[in-house]
Amino acid sequence: MTLEMNRKVKDLVRLALAAERQRVPLKREDIAKKVLKDHSRAFRVIFEKTQVQLRRVFGMELVELPTREKAQQIGVSAARRAAVHREKTSTNTFVLRSILPAELRHAELIDWGEDAALMGFSMVVLSLIYVNERTLSEERLHHYLRKLGVTERPHPQLKSLEVALMRMVKIGYLDRVTSSGDSGDVSAIEYRWGPRAKVEMDEREMADFVVKVFGDQAPADLVQSIRRASGVIDASTA
């Protein structure tokens, strides 16, 4: 590896970490502009070498975000959406994802600092969406969150319901889909998993989290009922 290439790999590692600190996705054009400069054609090479460093030193990797689902009519079933979603093009936008094995993550060694409260909140919101066939009307979401003490009023850890949800949308955990009714009167708002959620969340782990919340009292077939609630129809659980 030449000296210059080495330098560019280091720059890209640094840029990726810096972008992730703000939880801002990294665009390919930014990589070209800030790291590669005149060598934009070396993207593949630098990118792959950066991945090696990120994996080995930091236990992370860059993952391309999936394309956003096109604004679709609310109420289209998850199965049908999945079918439409198949044809995808690359977004050329990346986020960092942890590649630490589950055992290490479960040891809870990482100090999440101020992020912890929002992470808990995000996990709750995303799991609620998941068990409601992956779309949740704003009305229902607010209803659940009210029961959890998160309302329009100021909240000691999450500021307020609106602030916390907006933060999730900004980070890319949530997609906020607005559709005006046929007659244009009442506009319905629905929440779905955003692109970052699809990268960071694994459906099996999501189910494990819900089981963990139920603790000792979890019914035996809880995992299966969670899968069914997520709108997945498969032969083994039906």
Binding site: W112, A116, G120, S122, M123
Partner: peptide, 8 residues
């Protein structure tokens, strides 16, 4: 959140 960190 600390618990959730293990699942995401």
């Amino acid at each position: 959140g600390r618990t959730a960190g293990a699942y995401m």
